[in-house]
């Protein structure tokens, strides 16, 4: 490995993203699911900033900033939903919530 270039960052981002996907697909605990989603969001932020840095274009950072803001909003609402579900069902296992089945 001679020099750290863009594809190292992208590869790292891809790895973390895949870990996030694995978390979403294998775990049933709603809170851990949420954290996996945060992992995926973070990996995409990393990719965005890496591109921005290697293109000398600050717009990528702006985008990352918006992603953080949206993630914050999402976490707030998502956790509120989890708490509500827990209140009503006394569980946060996502398999216990399947009222919407066809």
């Amino acid at each position: 490995m001679s020099e750290i270039t863009i594809h190292h960052y992208i590869a790292l981002s891809a790895i973390i993203f895949s870990i996030g996907v694995a978390g979403v697909l294998t775990r049933k605990n709603a809170i851990i699911l949420f954290m996996s989603i945060e992992l995926m969001l973070n990996s995409s932020n990393l990719a965005l900033i890496a591109f921005a840095s290697f293109m000398s274009n600050p717009v990528g950072q702006i985008f990352a900033l918006f992603v953080i803001a949206v993630a914050a909003a999402e976490v707030g609402v998502g956790l509120a939903i989890i708490v509500t579900v827990y209140r009503n069902r006394n569980s946060i296992n996502i398999d216990d919530v399947h009222l919407m089945k066809g």
């Binding site: 697909l25 996502i94 089945k101 066809g102």
Partner: peptide, 18 residues
């Protein structure tokens, strides 16, 4: 028949989406 795909389990949806 198709409504059976709609299991209500989040994991199934996530898997199919992935």
């Amino acid at each position: 028949h198709l409504r059976k795909l709609q299991t209500g389990y989040l994991s199934n949806y996530a898997l199919l989406m992935s």
